[in-house]
Design a protein around this nucleic acid. Structure first.
Lengths: 343, 343
DNA sequence: CTGAAAGCGCTTACAG
DNA sequence: CTGAAAGCGCTTACAG
């Protein structure tokens, strides 16, 4: 009567393994593995038996074991600068919708517009061997660049475009968009157009470049009209910048804010101070964020294709992760002027 | 002259492994492993040698191998309803700041207030064996509840509190906070106070309950004054709800909006329509989100402790993941009335 | 305090 | 098309 279990050395995880499924299906574990991943040709009958057994036992592959054996996980590292900018929330949403149903899980990292922090995130997450990498723009430390290159992980750059062949990217011309909204203000008869910006990240500076280009073409460029703050973009900062312009540059008749949140703050400041918009001063924003259409007056802005950027960027990455024909290296999407009553 | 390399069966990953470090340090791999993790007592001299060798070779542990061997990854699954509600961005920020420096990486999942989606996220991520789990509130499918319980992964509930012993949670009383802001409106002399809500998630409904309690106590409760929309919260929806109240309930003299974004929309609608706030109608919000202090007039609201919830929730989870004394099951944080000019 | 052995649960690389 | 063997790079569980 010795029914005590044998001295157990095995760690009992209780998990249903490939082995269990193989035994139940009467085939080898490799065959089950192949059948479940749809890899290679497996005899239809065996594949079906494997699937049925897996289903019946409630088999769920172990991602850690899979990652260890294949040297590749199913996570996709997505690096964005800041979640408090609704732009990136829209971007992430589109990325998730594209990747998740295809069996890849986005792993979100927030850099806070900080090169050192981005580097730390890469150092932390790259050892997980993500299947792919989605990063914002091209501006990063040399070390970060090398980490990405040496990792061998397929990488797509979002929100900006680059001419360089071999560099995968999906975005639009921030410069052109900045020039377009500035030209719109010129067409409305504005002559002293200020540019108010926060954060001063590369994309903001590209919009500044577009602003300059448009004003130079009109012979109306004046560096004194650029109000650049390195602070984070926020409604409160926008209000301050607006008041600042009013005080220091009384002849300004229009402001192009580099992002809708500071533009909204500007509009609110105008309302509080009783400054007529667009009568006394026109206000334009950028990105068409939530609420801009509800401002008083509704905000003229540029609708940027962040959802499309997320979708197309993820799709481009998908092709590269799967080794499919990669398609174009760079996709340039459009933008759209949204003219409302603030200009 | 046969210097062609031997037939290679090994997959050359090129990675520096524990073995390499052990060889270099002249100790066994297990000793290196223990030294690097600070586990158990390792002779100081050996530990130092192991650390030096690891440093010198640029050794980075393989998370997949670690997860497979230990049956536990270093990721912490964090489930929030929606990133477009800035509340959750603040929450995630605090969670990241608390967890990341301690060697745990948040893995963000967005449920979109959808029980089925939450369940799918759990089914997808739980097999990764996260070290811990942070979820929003208590409202989920029975299947989700079981998945969590059976996984054995330590779990802390955020944003709400529960009396149940053994259920770890960090939050505050949404009901009390809702009652408090309603009482503030009463104290301001308002008598026909409407409650406008979107989304109708559990926390919103708890605020509604607080609203009712306060009005009943004052003998002023009227179900007709509740305007509940299942749509997602947004500035645009707030504007519509405001106009709706004005039209359908002309005697209303105050509105308590369940979230600041719809309150901001209400304020903007008032401004557009020329309705005096608080003269004709008082407006109060909830959460004190970005921009509320910049509204015209500035919005009276309730400042909720989401950053503290994130920090304390993550800290509570940290203790549980490490098997330290767990501390209290439930931490109830406070909230703060922020009275501005809209009431 | 230290280490040899076993094992975590998969996939790769061959061979047939 | 299928499978036996080896291996991915760690940690656990023992033993000493």
């Amino acid at each position: 009567m010795n029914d005590q279990p044998p001295r157990e050395r095995r760690r009992a995880t209780g998990r249903v393994t490939l082995q269990d499924v193989a035994r139940a299906a009467g085939v080898s574990p490799i065959t089950v593995s192949r059948a479940l991943r749809g890899e290679r040709a497996v005899a239809p009958e065996l594949a079906e038996r494997a699937r049925a057994a897996a289903e019946q036992l409630g088999y769920v592959p172990d991602p850690a074991a899979r990652a260890l054996a294949s040297q590749r996980s199913s996570q996709v590292l997505v690096l964005v600068p800041m979640l408090s900018n609704a732009l990136f929330v829209d971007l992430l949403e589109a990325v998730h919708r594209t990747l998740f149903p295809e069996g890849f899980q986005p792993l979100i990292g927030v850099t806070h517009y900080d090169a050192a922090e981005e580097e730390l995130l890469l150092r932390t997450y790259l050892p997980h061997r993500p299947a792919g990498l989605l990063v914002t723009g091209f501006d990063r430390s040399e070390a970060a660049r090398q980490l990405i290159a040496r990792s061998g992980v397929p990488c797509v750059h979002l929100m900006e475009t680059s001419g360089e062949p071999g560099v995968a990217c999906v975005g639009f011309s921030q410069t052109d968009a900045g020039a377009a909204i500035t030209r719109h203000l010129l067409e409305r008869g504005r002559r002293r157009i200020a540019f108010c910006a926060a954060q001063l990240d590369p994309r903001t500076l590209q919009r500044a470049e577009g602003y300059r280009r448009a004003l130079r073409e009109a012979g109306l460029h004046d560096p004194a009209l650029e109000v650049l703050s390195p602070e984070s973009s926020s409604i409160a900062l926008g209000a301050r910048l607006f008041e600042d312009v009013l005080r220091r540059l009384p002849d300004v008749d229009a402001i192009f804010f580099c992002n809708d949140d500071i533009a909204q703050g500007g509009l609110l400041a105008a309302s509080r101070l009783g400054v007529a918009v667009p009568g006394r001063i026109a206000v334009a924003g950028f990105n068409d964020l939530a609420g801009s259409d509800q401002m008083v007056p509704p905000l003229t802005t540029v609708r940027t294709p962040r959802a499309e950027v997320g979708r197309e960027g993820a799709a481009m990455l998908l092709r590269r992760m799967r080794g499919e024909p990669a398609g174009p290296d760079c996709i340039e999407l459009g933008y759209e002027l949204v003219v409302r009553e603030s200009t």
